[in-house]
Design a binder for these strands. Structure first.
Lengths: 158, 158
DNA sequence: GCAATCTAGTTTAATAATGCAACCATCGGA
DNA sequence: TCCGATGGTTGCATTATTAAACTAGATTGC
């Protein structure tokens, strides 16, 4: 059985996130949604994906509480797809992906857009990870600790 | 997963990142690598993926400059896979994925690990996005600007 | 020095996930 | 009522992913 292995029940939070939004289209759909896209047709036109795939992705995102459907809003009798707080919470992930590309892509000149802050119109800073007492942390400065309460499998996957 | 439409030449940096590392396994391979895993067999054992897929993923990651192969190191005559700076640059993306799961997962009690800073042993802060003058930015506070068309200027690596 | 085993793959066959195109249903307007 | 747009669904061909079997060189045991 081939069964695209699901990470839904993995105890690694990264795997769990990937299970939810770790495919090519879901992230891009959320990206569009963050820019205000809400209609089926708009998603389809801007992303250029097959409609059946879009149908499935939207349904999955709704099922997971990342999007919610609302009955119309602009007069038309159709529905629209709106981000929930969980969906808006994906924003930092998208920023991280964007910044990685900006920093390491071999042809950054092909990147068409820059993320700026609306108020000043200047590029945003790089996302950075800090300790609770304010030190800048890099990968090597961090470690994983088993989650305290509860006892469950020890498959400590990084 | 069919003709897996490639985003390689898309001008959106998010799409470009996803094209490079946006599949389940690549991210998880990099996650393991960040924790020091470097051998084929170790990756295979810890991730439980098919070996042929691992072969292809490792090769793709090497081709993209995310991993590099080094001839042995622990004595054995085999090779190992080491992260390049580009590979280590994925760290914030993984942190973002982890934190999204921690914040929004429906069964957070199933998450086995917590990311702490080594020095103090305390959980890290949440990744946050700041403007150049230090204001905390949310999705709605940002916008996209076309990249200043132009010369070969160095780019937004800030 | 020979067999057993470990490592790092490749090959194969089956199955599951896409992509594309065509089809269907509903709504609003003329 | 007919027409076009929106929001899907269905079929079919293509491709990806998988588990499992197989290979070949390196290492270990004896």
């Amino acid at each position: 059985m081939v069964k695209r292995t699901s990470f839904e029940h993995d105890d690694c939070p990264i795997a769990r996130s990937l299970d939810a939004i770790g495919d090519w289209w879901s992230m891009l759909i959320i990206r569009e949604a963050l820019f205000g896209i809400s209609r089926f047709g708009e998603f389809q036109k801007r992303l250029g994906l097959a409609k059946n795939i879009l149908t499935m992705r939207l349904r999955a995102l709704v099922d997971q509480g990342i999007l919610k459907t609302a009955p119309a809003s602009d007069g038309s009798a159709y529905q629209e797809y709106l981000l929930t707080p969980k969906g808006r919470g994906v924003f930092p992930i998208l920023v991280a992906l964007r910044q990685w590309s900006e920093e390491f892509d071999e042809r950054p000149e092909e990147i068409a857009t820059i993320l700026i802050d609306k108020e000043k119109g200047k590029p945003v800073r790089k996302l950075e990870l800090y300790s609770q007492d304010g030190r800048l942390l890099r990968a090597g400065d961090t470690a994983l600790k088993p989650r305290p309460a509860g006892k469950q499998g020890r498959r400590v996957t990084a």
